[in-house]
Design a binder for these strands. Structure first.
Length: 505
DNA sequence: GGTGCCGGGGC
DNA sequence: GCCCCGGCACC
C-alpha cells in the first residue's frame, strides 16, 4: 500500500467528523482478512466478539443512522454491506478518529487499547467495527456538509468537545505512532519475522511512552513540552506517520512495505535510488484469479467485468472493486535479475526450467502472504542448480530447495555450497511479492551468513551492502598459485579481479 | 606493499 | 555478457 494512496483516502476517511457522527462512515478500518457480512438492515457484523475496552461502555447508536452513514463513505472504497464476502485490500482507509468519538460528547467513548477494537452498538442490534489505532490521531477535518448528511435525527448531537483526557490520548497516540515510525526497530527490515517486529516495536513503544510522557498524580497523561524531540528524527507529515506506524502493529507483514514508504518519506538516498525501480502493480484478489495489471483502472475494470459482472465500459465505480485487488510493488530490477538468474543461460545448467510458484496459495491467503516471505516465494519451486566454471556471476552450485507443496510460510532452506556468495533468487513472483525493503537487489551476501542458515539470515539488509566486506579467503588464489607470468592459467574471475572461483575457501 | 575482490564502466 | 580497472580492505 502506498502512502500516497492512504493519503488520498484520508480525506474521505475523516470526512464528516462533525458532531453526531460516530465516524463509522467508511471508516471501518479492517485487518486484511477480516471478513464482514452484512445483516439485514445494513448492520455489519464481524467475526470477532465485541470488546469493551478499558471499561468504557459501548455506544448506543441508531442503527439506521449507522447504516446510512456506512454507505456514504464507501466512496473511499470500503463498503461493507454488499452481502458478499469481501476481500479487503490492503489499502485501508483511515478510520474514524477518536476525534470523532470525542466530538460525540456525552456518549461514552471507546478507548483503543489494542490494535483493533470493536464497538458494540445497541438498539437491539450489534454492530461491530474495527477501528484502528491510528484512529486516535488528530485527523481533524471538519466538514459541515458531511455533518448534515450523517447526523442522525435519533442521535443527540452534542457539540461540546469532550475535554482533557482525550486530547492527551490523542497526543499520546500520535507520539506513539511517530516514535514507532521513526524507530529503527520498525524501519530496520532485518527485524525479520513480523512477530519480532511486533514484540520489539511494542517494547519501543512502551519505552517511548515512558520517555515521552509524565504522568501526573491525577492519572492523566500530560504532554511534556520539553520532550517534543522524542521523535528524534525529522517527522514526516503526521498523516503519513499514522499509516506507517500503525500498520507496523496491525498488519504484521505490512510493516515491511510501510517501512519502505517510510524510507521514501525520509528521503533515504539508498531507498530512493531503488525506488526508481519499483513499480506498483495491481493484483486481483479474486479467488483463483491472479490477474496483475499495471493500472488501478485496469484492475478495477477487470474486476467489474470479470468478477462482478458489470459493464466494463462504464467508468462508474462504486468502489466495490477496491476490495478485490491489492497493490503490490514490483521491483523491476530484481524481477529482471531473478529471471536472468533462473534462465538456464549456462550450458551446464541442469534441471528443468524454473517453475514459478503460483499464486493460488497467495490468493487464498491473500494479502497476508503477498509480502510474506521473500525467499520462500521467490525461489523457484524446483531445485535449481547453477554450475559453471566460468562466470563469476554464476559463481557456484547453488541449490535452493523449496517446497511448493508446503504452505508458503514454511521456511525454505537455502543451501549454498562453498565460498560462493549466496544468490538470492528472485523469481517473477518473488520479485512481485517482494515489497520494498526486502528487495535490496543485493545478489551477494557474506559467505558467513550464507551456509546452513534459514531464510531469515539470508534476507539482505541494507546494512550488508555497506561496511561488511567479505573476509579474505585463506586459500591461495590463482595469482599466488600461478603467478603473474601464468596469468592465462588464472581463473576468469581472478583475471577480472573478481572473487576467485578456482580456489575457494 | 601485496593481495583479494567489490563496484563500476566500457564495449 | 565479457572484460577491465579503480579503489578499498585485509594481510
Amino acid at each position: 500500500m502506498t502512502s500516497k494512496r492512504l493519503l488520498d483516502k484520508k480525506p474521505a476517511g475523516v470526512r464528516g467528523t462533525g458532531a453526531g457522527n460516530f465516524g463509522y462512515e467508511g471508516n471501518y478500518c479492517t485487518k486484511h482478512n477480516e471478513h464482514f457480512s452484512a445483516k439485514p438492515g445494513g448492520i455489519i457484523t464481524g467475526k470477532k466478539s465485541p470488546v469493551k475496552i478499558n471499561g468504557f461502555d459501548t455506544q448506543i447508536v441508531d442503527a439506521c443512522s449507522l447504516q446510512e452513514s456506512c454507505k456514504e463513505p464507501c466512496s473511499n472504497g470500503n463498503r461493507l454491506a454488499s452481502g458478499r464476502e469481501k476481500h479487503y485490500t490492503k489499502k485501508k482507509t483511515i478510520c474514524a478518529s477518536e476525534e470523532d468519538e470525542r466530538e460525540v460528547g456525552p456518549v461514552d467513548v471507546l478507548k483503543c487499547s489494542s490494535f483493533t477494537h470493536h464497538l458494540v452498538l445497541n438498539e437491539q442490534k450489534q454492530v461491530e467495527t474495527i477501528i484502528s489505532l491510528r484512529s486516535m490521531l488528530p485527523l481533524r477535518v471538519t466538514d459541515v456538509s458531511a455533518e448534515k448528511i450523517y447526523a442522525s435525527a435519533h442521535i443527540p448531537v452534542p457539540h461540546i468537545r469532550k475535554p482533557s483526557g482525550h486530547a492527551d490520548k490523542e497526543v499520546m497516540a500520535a507520539t506513539v505512532l511517530t516514535t514507532l515510525s521513526t524507530s529503527p526497530l520498525v524501519l530496520n527490515p532485518s527485524s525479520g519475522a513480523s512477530g519480532g517486529v511486533l514484540e520489539t516495536s511494542s517494547r519501543g513503544w512502551k519505552e517511548s511512552l515512558s520517555a515521552s510522557y509524565s504522568s501526573s498524580t491525577s492519572g492523566n497523561w500530560s504532554w511534556d513540552a520539553s520532550d517534543q524531540s522524542v521523535p528524534s528524527t525529522p517527522s514526516p507529515p503526521l498523516s503519513n506517520d499514522v499509516n506507517k506506524s500503525f500498520l507496523a502493529y496491525s498488519q504484521g507483514e505490512d510493516n515491511i512495505e510501510e517501512a519502505e514508504s517510510t524510507h521514501f518519506l525520509f528521503e533515504d538516498p539508498i531507498r530512493r535510488k531503488r525506488k526508481n525501480s519499483m513499480k506498483v502493480m495491481f493484483k486481483c484478489l479474486w479467488k483463483n484469479c491472479e490477474k496483475v495489471l499495471s493500472t488501478s483502472s485496469g484492475i478495477q475494470r477487470h474486476i467489474r467485468t470479470i468478477h462482478l459482472g458489470r459493464n466494463g465500459d462504464s467508468d462508474y465505480s462504486d468502489g466495490e472493486e477496491d476490495f478485490y485487488y491489492s497493490e503490490i510493488a514490483v521491483n523491476m530490477d530484481t524481477l529482471s535479475e531473478g529471471l536472468s538468474n533462473l534462465t538456464p543461460t549456462s550450458p551446464t545448467t541442469t534441471g528443468p526450467p524454473p517453475i514459478f510458484p503460483l499464486v493460488n496459495d497467495m490468493s487464498q491467503s491473500r494479502s497476508a502472504t503477498v509480502i510474506h516471505s521473500p525467499l520462500s516465494q521467490s525461489a523457484p519451486s524446483t531445485l535449481c542448480h547453477i554450475r559453471t566454471d566460468h562466470a563469476y556471476q554464476a559463481t557456484a552450485p547453488v541449490s535452493i530447495p523449496t517446497v511448493s507443496s508446503e504452505p508458503l510460510h514454511s521456511h525454505s532452506t537455502i543451501s549454498v555450497s562453498w565460498q560462493s556468495p549466496s544468490i538470492i533468487f528472485k523469481s517473477q513472483l518473488g520479485a512481485v511479492n517482494h515489497v520494498g525493503i526486502l528487495s535490496t537487489g543485493e545478489k551477494r551476501q557474506p559467505v558467513t551468513h550464507a551456509v546452513g542458515k534459514t531464510q531469515t539470515t539470508t534476507i539482505p539488509t541494507p546494512k550488508t551492502s555497506t561496511g561488511t566486506r567479505k573476509p579474505r579467503g585463506e586459500a591461495k588464489k590463482c595469482r599466488k598459485v600461478y603467478g603473474m607470468e601464468k596469468k592465462d592459467l588464472w581463473c576468469t574471475a581472478c583475471r577480472w579481479k573478481k572473487a576467485c572461483q578456482r580456489f575457494t575457501d
